[in-house]
Design a protein around this nucleic acid. Structure first.
Length: 650
RNA sequence: GCUGACGUAGCUCAAUGGUAGAGCAGCUGAUUUGUAAUCAGCAGGUUAAGGGUUCGAGUCCCUUCGUCAGCUCCA
């Protein structure tokens, strides 16, 4: 082949010859004018690039258009640049930070010496529309480190970034119209490709995510290929707001957080208390069947205990201050509300000699612990200061670790997947900077968790540096209504506390051995888990969890006695029934039950009263009603509760 | 904790610096209803708390508390 020509492989496997130095744009043109117009970026040997870069010979390539999710990411990245272009036009002195694409959109960080006002954002959005209309091409150039430093000599934030780049890294600069930015790219061909965007909000963000450094002002935006996609996204945000557990919690009278009581402290109202109660009963049944033992330990303890456990020096900022008990304030008599249960469970383990035959010993407690979380982090039920942990600590031999974790993951799957049908993600979190114990301990611990995950054949992601300070962990994560990620279940290996408390068992060799310890929670905390369930079910809980399971609706006062009899029968059968005695129309009562997400309405009219039957209307089922004898209704309800069915059986 | 926005009846929201209002919920009465809102009346407020400016503050200023979004930190 002559050197003046190159060849690339297209997605369908066919080969295409191009002149040497041909770019992605040239390729698109060569394939067809339609594609040339639609082309946004190109995948070269798996790497997303601009269309303007020359193609290497023999590359496997794919032109990306608005059909491709990866192109959407590029579009959003370019949108961030268009945003910065607009900001620099309005505030020429603005310092610029980073501007990456994110899920559903993009952001860019600025420093204009003051925060942005809502009016600023409006003006910026208008200016940004001008920038996109101007259709500035994005041009890429590669420069030397010295050149880059010269070009950005007035941009201290960019200079800092440049000096952090590795020596061998290629430094590229992108220009769109008047705006020049240090950027790895890639970008769409021109700002005119950005048509459907919206700036959402501004908020402070620390430079490089470090709270010790200056705070920049971040502007968030969203961008899509079509107006329809953009509108859909805005609608999705509105819909998500309706699922918000704080909104539904109020509507269904599940819980409150009150200024008089304190932020981050959940007050469970009767309806919410049912959720709490059922979940406790559910998980306790499961773990008792699997060899766990329930314990109860105090809410306060001598501070000394947390000194010994090593928590206090690292965790003091998250603990409520000490309180004095007895005389004076010597360490002997200072008490703390507990932020975790492990030291107490350890003392139960240590209260007698343990044989290798006794292990594993599994101590479980759904306990209230209190953590003084920073005020800005609190969020409804999902981030609180008073936590009901479904905690357990397992004391075992090193050779039992993998099997135990294997079995814990089974419980996780049973609860999260099988019972609630939840989508969740597994993370393996490894050693953080701030940690207890030696690297050798961490090596062993991390390996043990990983092999259990592998043996179960589960997909997981590495979360490097995300571990607790006392050991690595497997975290189960889920998203809330508006897409934020939270941690639920957690399984943590701990070689540190057994060391500190000198936990031992007597082995078959009649010699003392160091005990290994596992911390685990399945729900995580009842607060967070319930908050998550509220959003997951949008308040329409499965029957076994529903605060009110049946509302009995007499059509008129004439059927009140018959309705009361049905209500009593249901209650005797253990069904949470409520009798709607109000002097309202049937339509009104049905509407009210629907808006309260009651699973079943049992209508009792003249016909039902005479036949000792009920006309059952399921939640959200419209007027598809089923008439059946009361006894049969009870039977079906009991079955649905007993099987914890996610689907109504009637 | 930091940056910004916000805080009015139980809930959702109105009110140029000039008499604090509506809908829903609640209560009372009438209505007795067959599958998503019957009608009428009544009651409900130190406008988060405290201070200041002003003839006059829900509205402007300050402090505190709280909420929301984001950052940081975490179950």
């Amino acid at each position: 082949m002559p050197s003046s020509e190159i060849q690339v492989v297209l997605p369908d496997g066919s080969k295409k010859a191009l002149p040497a130095g041909a770019t992605g744009a040239d390729l698109a043109r060569a394939v067809g004018p339609g594609l040339a117009k639609a082309a946004l970026a190109i995948r070269v040997n798996g790497e997303i690039r601009d269309l303007q870069r020359p193609l290497p010979d023999g590359a496997t390539v794919a032109i990306l258009t608005n059909k491709d999710p990866q192109a959407l990411e590029v579009l959003r990245h370019s949108s961030a640049h268009a945003l910065a272009t607009a900001v620099r036009q309005i505030f020429p002195q603005a310092q610029i930070g980073f501007g990456p694409p994110i899920e559903d959109g993009f952001y860019y960080d600025f420093d204009i010496g003051r925060p942005f006002t809502p009016e600023d954002i409006e003006a910026i959005e208008k200016k940004m529309a001008e920038v996109t209309k101007a259709d500035y091409p994005f041009t890429r150039e590669e420069v030397s480190r010295a050149e880059a430093k010269k070009r950005f000599r007035d941009d201290p934030l960019k200079l800092e970034r440049i000096s952090d780049l590795a020596d061998n890294e290629i430094i590229s600069i992108y220009t769109d119209g008047p705006f020049v930015d240090l950027c790895r790219g890639p970008h769409v061909p021109s700002t005119g490709k950005i048509q459907h965007f919206k700036l959402l909000h501004a908020a402070g963000a620390y430079w490089r995510g470090d709270e010790r450094r200056q705070m920049l002002q971040r502007i968030y935006g969203t961008a899509w290929f079509t107006k329809q996609d953009l509108d859909q996204y805005i609608t999705r945000l509105e819909e998500a707001r309706k699922r918000d557990h704080r909104v539904i919690g109020k509507q269904l009278d599940l819980f409150s957080i009150q200024e008089d009581i304190g932020p981050g402290l959940i007050v469970w109202h009767p309806n919410g208390a049912i959720l709490n109660f059922e979940l406790r009963r559910f998980i306790e049944d499961i773990i008792l069947q699997r060899g766990y033992q329930l314990v109860y330990t105090p809410n306060v303890t001598r501070e000394q205990l947390f000194l010994r456990s090593g928590h206090l020096p690292l965790y003091a900022a998250n603990q409520f201050p000490a309180m004095a008990a007895g005389e004076g304030e010597s360490e002997e008599v200072r008490y703390r509300v507990k932020p975790m249960n492990c030291p107490m469970h350890i003392l139960i383990y240590a209260s007698q000699q343990r044989s290798y035959r006794d292990l594993p010993i599994r101590l479980a407690e759904i306990a209230n612990v209190y953590r003084n979380e920073r005020s800005g982090t609190l969020h409804g039920m999902l981030r609180v200061r008073g936590l009901s942990m479904d905690d357990a600590h397992i004391f075992l031999r090193e050779d039992q670790i993998e099997e135990e974790i294997f079995n814990m993951l089974d419980i996780v799957e049973l609860v999260m997947g099988k019972t609630f049908g939840l989508q969740y993600r597994l993370d393996l979190a490894t050693r953080p900077d701030k940690k207890l114990g030696t690297d050798a301990m961490w090596d062993v611990a991390e390996k043990a968790l990983e092999s259990a995950l592998k043996r179960r054949g589960l997909q997981y992601k590495m979360d490097v540096g995300g571990g607790a300070f006392y050991g690595p962990k497997i975290d189960i994560k889920f998203n809330d209504a508006i897409g934020r990620e939270w941690q639920g279940a957690t399984i943590q290996l701990d070689y540190e506390l057994p060391e500190r408390f000198k936990l031992e068992y007597t082995g078959a060799d009649n010699k003392p051995h160091r005990t290994v310890m596992l911390h685990r929670a399945i729900f995580g905390t009842l607060e967070r888990f319930v908050g998550f369930l509220i959003e997951h079910f949008a308040g329409a809980f499965p029957l076994w969890l529903s605060p009110t399971q049946v509302r009995v609706l007499p059509i008129a006062d004439g059927q009140m006695d018959a309705a009361r009899a049905v209500h009593e029968t249901l209650r005797q059968a253990g069904i949470r029934s409520h009798l709607d005695e109000r002097s309202e129309t049937l339509n009104y009562k049905i509407r009210d039950a629907e808006t309260h997400k009651i699973p079943y309405m049992a209508v009792v009219g003249q016909r039902e009263a005479e036949a000792k039957s009920v006309a059952v209307r399921g939640r959200g089922a419209g007027n598809k009603q089923v008439v059946m004898p009361v006894a049969e209704f009870v039977q079906k309800l009991k079955e649905e509760v007993h099987t914890r069915s996610l689907k109504p059986l009637i």
